Amino acid sequence: MLYGTPALEAADKVVLAEIEDMRQDLEYRLAETHRWDGQLRRQLQARAIQGSNAIEGYRASVEDVQSIMAGEEPLDASNAVTKEIAGYQQALTYIRSLSRAPAFRYDAGLLNALNFMMIGHHGPQSPGVIRSGAIYVRDFSSGRVVYEGPDAVLVPALLDELVAWLNEGDLEAPSYVRAAMAHLNLVNIHPWRDGNGRMSRALQTLVLGRDQIMTPEFCSIEEWLGQQRTTIEYYDVLGAVGRRRWSPHGDTLAWVRFCLRAHHMQAQRVAARLAEAGEIWTYLEEQVDADGLNDRCVSALYEAFVNRRLRRSRYQADQDLSQGQAARDLRELAARKWLQPYGETKGRYYQAGPRLRRLREEFAERAVPLRDPCA
Rank of each mutant, 00 (worst) to 15 (best):
V241E: 08
A275T: 13
R178H: 08
E276V: 04
P216L: 03
A179G: 14
R243N: 15
W246Q: 11
K346V: 08
R355A: 14
M69T: 13
Q319I: 07
R273H: 00
G195M: 04
I280Q: 04
S99A: 15
Q212E: 12
T33R: 09
N196Q: 03
Q212C: 10
Q228G: 09
L30Y: 04
R244W: 10
G57Q: 04
F258N: 03
H122N: 12
A367V: 08
S78E: 10
D251L: 00
P248H: 01
A113P: 03
G143W: 03
D211N: 14
G38F: 00
I95V: 12
E148G: 07
L359R: 14
P150D: 03
C259T: 05
Q45V: 01
L98R: 12
P248N: 03
L110V: 01
L30C: 06
A327S: 10
S141G: 13
V81C: 09
C259M: 02
I232A: 04
E362R: 15
G149D: 05
E18K: 05
D320E: 09
R296A: 01
D37M: 05
L8V: 13
A77W: 01
M117Q: 14
L370Q: 04
F104H: 07
R244H: 15
V129I: 12
R42P: 01
A103Y: 09
G71D: 08
Y3H: 12
R201I: 10
G149N: 05
L40M: 00
E303K: 09
L162R: 09
H122V: 13
Q228L: 02
G4K: 12
